[in-house]
Computed example of a mutant assay.
Amino acid sequence: MFCKSFLICSLFFLLTGCSSEQSAKHASKTVSLMGKAEPSEAFVPATINLVGIGDSLTRGLGDESDHGGYFGMVKEMLEQQDEIKEVLIDNYGVIGYKTSNLQNKLSEEDVMASIKEADIILMTIGGNDLMGVVRNHLFSLDFEPFRKEQKHFENRMRDIFTEIRELNSSAYIVYVGLYNPFTYMLSELPELDTIIDEWNRASQQIVSKDGNAVFVKVDHLFSSVDDDTLLYKDKFHPNENGYSIIADQVFEAIIESPLDRFANQQ
């Protein structure tokens, strides 16, 4: 069973939720595209439809800059590529969303229309499902309720992928995995790392079965107990620094598949 300090800290994070922002600058690392063949004369740069769905991380909560979190940063990175003329965006990330909320969101007409036209779909979801277990079991936290909820989470994730593919069979889906925001304050609780790893492995299996989707692992980026400069003032969401490194990982996952597949050939 988790220790009392974890319960107190968890309750604090849940009650404080989204607080005021903390500013920090971080230089995004340069992703090299050296060695790529020059496009042919018939090559026409593409217009990319980029759609975001999920929770507060896709919304960009915690980024005090004007980049819009990892979603906005990835948009800017894509716009810098020769293969891309412009990036049109729709961001449906909503603060507090769980997988059940996202299921309902996918039935809204404007969301359905955007997904039908999407070339790339970026998604974060699951963190609030996990934290819901904390809220509902404050005084009896152990592995069992997390693993029970994980089964429901997996079923909803499968349904989400099914719903997306019924609307769009060809969009490239990028799912960003979960990380442990309590590493810095509760490093003595490796149990939570184990739980997050189990949820991530379950998500990765679902994503891998899609065939045109990728799981982006980020928990290792937030695993240092020496430094919390990647987190927003609420000690839960990423700040500009944190979103920048997430954006780097997402962008690398996108360009592993040639961008010119989106371009028009005359």
Results as ranks from 00 to 15, higher is better:
Val111Ala: 10
Val111His: 07
Val111Cys: 11
Met112Trp: 00
Ser114Trp: 12
Ser114Asn: 13
Ile115Thr: 01
Glu117Gln: 09
Glu117Val: 00
Ala118Glu: 02
Ala118Pro: 00
Asp119Gln: 06
Asp119Leu: 08
Asp119Tyr: 03
Ile120Gly: 03
Ile120Ser: 02
Ile121Arg: 03
Ile121Trp: 01
Leu122Thr: 06
Met123Asp: 05
Thr124Cys: 10
Thr124Arg: 10
Ile125Pro: 04
Ile125Asn: 05
Asn128Gln: 01
Asn128Pro: 01
Asp129Gly: 03
Leu130Lys: 02
Leu130Glu: 02
Met131Thr: 14
Met131Lys: 11
Gly132Ile: 07
Gly132Thr: 09
Val134Gln: 06
Arg135Glu: 13
Arg135Thr: 03
Arg135Pro: 05
Arg135Phe: 13
Arg135Gly: 13
His137Trp: 08
Leu138Lys: 05
Leu138Phe: 11
Phe139Leu: 15
Phe139His: 12
Leu141Cys: 05
Leu141Asn: 03
Asp142Ile: 08
Asp142Thr: 15
Asp142Gly: 11
Glu144Tyr: 14
Glu144Cys: 06
Arg147Gln: 13
Arg147Cys: 06
Lys148Gln: 15
Lys148Thr: 09
Lys148Phe: 11
Lys151Ile: 07
Lys151Gln: 12
Lys151Asp: 12
His152Trp: 04
His152Lys: 15
His152Gln: 13
Phe153His: 08
Phe153Cys: 01
Glu154Asn: 10
Glu154Pro: 09
Arg156Cys: 05
Arg156Glu: 12
Arg156His: 10
Arg156Ser: 10
Met157Asn: 05
Arg158Tyr: 10
Arg158Met: 13
Arg158Lys: 15
Asp159Val: 00
Asp159Asn: 15
Ile160Met: 04
Ile160Phe: 05
Phe161Gly: 09
Phe161Cys: 08
Glu163Leu: 10
Ile164Pro: 04
Arg165Phe: 08
Glu166Tyr: 09
Glu166Arg: 11
Glu166Asn: 15
Glu166Phe: 12
Glu166Lys: 14
Glu166Trp: 03
Leu167Glu: 04
Leu167Thr: 00
Leu167Trp: 01
Asn168Cys: 08
Ser169Trp: 01
